[in-house]
Design a protein around this nucleic acid. Sequence first.
DNA 1: ATAAATATTTAGGCAAATCTAAAAATATGT
DNA 2: ACATATTTTTAGATTTGCCTAAATATTTAT
Lengths: 219, 219
Amino acid sequence: MTSSEENYIKGIFHLSQGGQHSITTSALAEKMETKPSSVTDMVKRLAEKGLLHYKKYQGVRLTEEGAGHALKVIRKHRLWEVFLVDKLNFAWDQVHEVAEQLEHIESEMLVDRLDALLNFPEFDPHGDPIPDKEGRFKTREKKLLSAMPAKSRGICVGVKDSSSQFLKFLDKYHIELGNTIEVLERESFDRSMHIQVGKRKLQISHQIASNLYVKPQPE
Amino acid sequence: MTSSEENYIKGIFHLSQGGQHSITTSALAEKMETKPSSVTDMVKRLAEKGLLHYKKYQGVRLTEEGAGHALKVIRKHRLWEVFLVDKLNFAWDQVHEVAEQLEHIESEMLVDRLDALLNFPEFDPHGDPIPDKEGRFKTREKKLLSAMPAKSRGICVGVKDSSSQFLKFLDKYHIELGNTIEVLERESFDRSMHIQVGKRKLQISHQIASNLYVKPQPE
DNA sequence: ATAAATATTTAGGCAAATCTAAAAATATGT
DNA sequence: ACATATTTTTAGATTTGCCTAAATATTTAT
Ligand SMILES: [Mn+2]
Ligand SMILES: [Mn+2]
Ligand SMILES: [Mn+2]
Ligand SMILES: [Mn+2]
């Protein structure tokens, strides 16, 4: 399987996580930053190889085999991200591009040994779950901070937007995965929020709150 | 630069180390395990990009830029080999294939941090020198064991053949880089040698002796 | 229900990297 | 020197992955 094929499979997998049964040509074209005609070409090849189901004008859906392959690529991507952060001291906004390359390296031994070196991490630096050898991964209860009511608390467990700009913004305000965040007050006018992170109080816009995942805490 | 282009540049660089001024199309075709006509195509493209000098029927020679690029790829290849052996416990006969893939990953930060993680190694698991950031590398005096006279001693510092079969053969007889090897006697008939490795005495064929490099020791 | 807008596919082309077969240049042997 | 052998290049095809423009199917709006 080529890198390009793997990227398409991964793109389809991610779009499928959004709940849709079938992924349209145009949605996939947008995701892959390519033209719909190129997508049609590629999905025909992938259907040929048994990695997805494709009927003209009906969009695509991964086969078991296709989804399995997607999970392997995602596993590699996220393990490499952990490696870059934990072992090479990359910042969490610097790892994605390199992981995009490393995820295509073929060697089962490499992946498994890397997994062991990193102590079998269950989540990547952005809070996304890492599939194990069999493709299984932990899910955890999480809600967008923007969906949390006033007076509630949660632990920051992930980001929805993992762009370098957003991650650097979080760094600037010292918001990290693992922090406890309490919602002090919600402004209905602009949907901004007053929150407390550890001892610090700050006000964040809706845009920020709607890209941070928290695990709601009791009490 | 594509992986394929990098592989050609690396192939030419290695052939050039054998002393020839100019590398012929057929020599390169053999090295790259491809057809001469494919080589002609590729070297035209590489000449176009300024990575090598090419005149029809005259063979090729790397430019400064081409050689510099080759050194970068070789640096990455050998650093990754060290990583696989030192950090992921690969055997020295298992690293080459994976390093062939990893050497094409593009990220200067990755290479430099990896170098640091490994404590700036100067030689790879097969005894080959690792170029530094500027492309400079240590050379050390080394001779083929087959060229050592009787009663002489040397330290095993490298292999000429780094095929998995040869490396596994050395493992089987517990011959490792760093071992002191003494030549006890040379058989002129079949050119086999009686050697002493540490406390152990053994007899090795010319084929083995002519693929092991030693650094001659005084006395 | 029909027309207009939108989405998707097809057709035809291009660049990279490979191949085979044929042509051209170079090297070798008597 | 000249014929023969070898090496190298060219010509033409193939596959992957992409493009643009045109054709076709589907969806939406009147
Ligand atoms: Mn990523
Ligand atoms: Mn990630
Ligand atoms: Mn190697
Ligand atoms: Mn090596």
